[in-house]
Simulated scan of single mutants.
Amino acid sequence: MNLSKGFWENKYKTNKIGWDLGEISPPLKSYFDQLTNKNLKILIPGGGNSYEAEYLFKKGFKNVYVVDISKQPLENIKNRVANFPDSQLIFADFFDLDLKFDLIIEQTFFCAINPNLREKYASKMHKYLNKNGKLVGLLFDAKLNEDHPPFGGNKEEYKTYFKPYFSLEIFTECYNSYPNRQEMELFVKFVKKGI
């Protein structure tokens, strides 16, 4: 299973991006609308076309960063939001970052990586967050594919990855998912443990 840079670039070139809602995910919009600190340094990993980054930026959150292994979606963001800072559109592998954030948003990245990287994902999230930093977003609560993304899972499995690094403050069935994801998502808000 080769989920390389080329694999993802080809998905965008051939427009095989079924995970892309074409708009901000309703649960994340609701969460963002509650945020008041516009100085938060926010990362959206594996952000793709990131309507979430666009929404935050237009609401006045100027420290929003998107990292993606594919260049095309980063260019798509720049085309939609001309004044989005180039330095905050990071063309790189998430696992190679050397930055710190107050808030990291999970939106279809966890389900896109090879499942054998899930434990590494949790430890990197912990590493990339500042003290009391938060990992917030959506995880699939469904049995999906085994040989290609999106990869599914369940709450009990996810706990094994995140409990060592985070206080699982909110970990519940999502009530306001996008229509085609109803009853398939968990909304999570994990707070970095001081380990």
Rank of each mutant, 00 (worst) to 15 (best):
Q72S: 14
R181D: 04
Y165S: 05
C111G: 03
K159H: 08
F94I: 03
R181N: 14
N176K: 08
N116A: 05
K120Q: 13
T108W: 05
C111V: 11
G153T: 03
F162W: 11
P150G: 13
K134H: 04
C174T: 10
P164E: 12
P149H: 05
E183R: 07
D93T: 09
L97M: 12
F190H: 02
D102N: 14
Y175V: 07
K193F: 06
Q88R: 11
E185A: 02
P115C: 05
T108Q: 07
K131I: 15
L74A: 07
V188Y: 01
F140Y: 15
K155V: 13
Y121M: 07
K100P: 00
G133E: 08
L135W: 06
I104Q: 08
Q88E: 05
N116D: 14
K143A: 01
Y161R: 03
D93W: 10
K163D: 09
D86M: 04
Y121T: 11
G152H: 11
D86W: 00
E106I: 07
R80D: 06
K163V: 15
F187D: 05
L117F: 13
Y175D: 10
F140G: 04
F94R: 02
E75F: 11
K78L: 06
K71A: 10
E156F: 12
K159E: 13
V191E: 14
P164Y: 12
N116I: 14
K131F: 13
V67W: 01
E119Y: 06
P150Y: 12
D98S: 14
Y121E: 09
K71G: 01
L144D: 08
F190C: 02
N176Y: 08
D98W: 02
K155Q: 15
N114M: 09
K71M: 09
N76M: 14
N83M: 00
Y158T: 07
V136P: 03
Y128T: 10
K134W: 00
L138M: 14
E157K: 13
L103F: 06
M184K: 15
F101K: 04
L144T: 04
A82D: 07
F109G: 01
F110Q: 00
G153W: 04
I69Q: 09
E119C: 00
D147P: 00
G194Q: 14
Y161F: 15
I105G: 08
E173P: 04
I105M: 11
Y158K: 09
F190Q: 01
Y121N: 09
F109R: 01
I69C: 08
V66R: 04
A122W: 13
V191R: 15
V191P: 00
D96L: 07
C174S: 13
F101M: 10
S167I: 14
H126N: 14
T172R: 06
D147I: 12
E106G: 04
E185P: 02
K127E: 14
V136L: 08
